[in-house]
Write a protein that binds this DNA or RNA. Structure first.
Lengths: 155, 155
DNA sequence: TTGACTTTGACTTTCATTTTCATAATATAA
DNA sequence: TTATATTATGAAAATGAAAGTCAAAGTCAA
């Protein structure tokens, strides 16, 4: 299992290296650390979150570098930008081609991913009705996750 | 037809007045102008857009006032806040209780509203599966509207 | 009309994000 | 390996949208 994750991240790193040489970028240890951490963790990050977590492991990285690296990841296709209306941008690992949507807990911030081909089918129908060409879609359900719901019940 | 719109806006203004007295607000001509324009136009606005358009008719309004008035409208329930990921907040007229989703043209910015009870049903099912309590949802389809699609075809 | 309120416009502040620039690190050519 | 050219970095400044501040102007009930 762990092996599989490692292999996957390896191939994602390879993707980044392709992008890197295409763009004439250089390899810095700091940037690499950030990218590896992001790939290893494999979850949503705001710049701030990633900054503080990476800093624990590699204390010398700066905020700007995390910023720039996340943008690079987005440009290279390894990360996807998503915002949940709280004013900060989040980056999610882009598991190629596998589009998914989000359940966002308004209390604890937990993000759950889901996918529904049925919904996507209905979306297509709606677009057709309006003669609209859909390039991408965004579906977010906001509310309380199981945990917070339980807490809310006992006030 | 026009009559109907006017009547509707009248009743919306009444709603605002209820909110107004509830909150102990006062009536200023400028605020009223902004609200009337917003209701008359009955479409999505960013603060900037509304500011420039209202300014043409009532040149004395300031940016702050438009800003505050839109926030008031949102608070009073006459407007709903929505953001389409371009970094600026938009306000849409809230046609009470009627939740709807959006088709957003990435080229010309046109926003088409739609509603699908079927999709909402599926959303509910998904939430149930995750034991998640949905408070609100957001569904946006981004792409090209009919018009821009046509233009795109002939390069 | 007064006096107690709210609203306004101009301004400042905040905060996330982006850019700048001098210095450090990296890659490539010799 | 060393020189040189380029990119990356950190700290700081700049930006831009959103929110707050405050004196002056407006509103309105008594």
């Amino acid at each position: 299992m762990k092996m599989k994750v490692k292999v996957k991240n390896k191939s994602r790193l390879d993707d980044f290296n392709k992008y890197k040489s295409h763009k004439g970028l250089k390899t810095s240890q700091k940037r690499l650390s950030i990218i590896e951490y992001f790939l290893k963790e494999d979850r949503h990050f705001s710049v701030e979150e990633l900054y503080y977590e990476v800093k624990k492991v590699y204390p010398k990285v700066s905020y700007s570098t995390v910023y720039r690296t996340l943008k690079l990841l987005a440009d290279s296709g390894l990360a996807r930008i998503c915002s949940f209306g709280d004013g900060t941008t989040r980056f999610e690992p882009a598991h190629k081609a596998e589009h998914h949507d989000h359940l966002v807990c308004q209390r604890c911030g937990t993000i759950i991913e889901f996918k529904s081909t049925e919904i996507e089918l209905l979306q297509k129908k709606i677009a057709q009705k309006h003669n609209f060409l859909v390039v991408l879609h965004k579906l977010e359900l906001y509310g309380l996750c199981a945990n917070c719901k339980k807490k809310a019940r006992r006030h």
